[in-house]
Each structure stands twice: as structure tokens, then as C-alpha cells.
Design a protein around this nucleic acid. Structure first.
Length: 104
DNA sequence: CAACTGACCTAAT
DNA sequence: CATTAGGCCAGTT
């Protein structure tokens, strides 16, 4: 079967595969997990259990950190990426062209 | 059970 | 490259 929970599990598995210093988009993860139209579920999957995952390497299609609201975890995400050598421009965006990861 | 929500995406302009 | 409008779909209300 292919329950929503199962899909989320596959998403997390792909997130775990993203290497140091590289990033992937929500849409990429959804597609890799076999659910092309479930980009939003990726965010949900991470919100549920991001503890043991490099969740900070997931950004939206604009190359920006998706705004969360008030918990400040979005600021943390940027810090973590910069610590891995990812550079942001004045608009808070990174170059997907340079850092986007895709499996072999 | 209908309506709303949201860590999104694409295509058109 | 920036903005807008429409679509998507699992959760939550």
C-alpha cells in the first residue's frame, strides 16, 4: 500500500541522503519519493520528525528558506547552511544552480 | 461532512 | 528576474 505515512517515511529517507553543503527543494524530495504533487507533505514530514535529519538542506523552489512564523527555526536553518559553506544573497536566497543536489 | 490551512509548485505575464 | 493566479492534497477545524 501507499499510505500518507509511508510516503512521508520515504521522503525522510531521501532527505537523509542529501550530502553536506548541498540542498534540495521540497518538490525534488516529493518527486523522488514517488509523490510528485505532494511537495507540501515534505514540510509536514519534517515538522513531525526532523530530529535526526539534515532538514536544513531543504528549501523552496525560489532558493529561499520557507518562512515558519515565530519559532525562529528558519533563522537557524540559514545559519546551519552558511556553516556548510552555502552563500546567501541580499534577498536571502541561495544559488540553486550551484548547490542543488540530485541523485546519481 | 464542508471549509480552511499551509516548511509548495508551475506557468503565464 | 519579480509578480500573479491557479492548482495540489493531507491535516485540522
Amino acid at each position: 500500500m501507499d499510505s500518507a505515512a509511508t510516503v512521508r517515511a520515504r521522503m525522510r529517507a531521501w532527505v537523509a541522503k542529501v550530502p553536506y553543503g548541498r540542498v534540495a527543494t521540497y518538490g525534488d524530495i516529493a518527486r523522488l519519493a514517488g509523490a510528485p504533487r505532494h511537495a507540501r507533505q515534505v514540510g509536514l514530514a519534517l515538522r513531525e520528525s526532523a530530529q535526526d535529519l539534515p532538514w536544513h538542506r531543504i528549501v523552496n523552489q525560489q532558493g529561499k528558506v520557507s518562512a515558519r512564523g515565530l519559532d525562529g527555526s528558519d533563522d537557524l536553518q540559514r545559519v546551519l547552511l552558511e556553516a556548510e559553506g552555502v552563500e546567501f544573497d541580499g534577498a536571502g536566497r541561495l544559488s540553486l544552480r550551484r548547490h542543488r543536489w540530485q541523485p546519481d
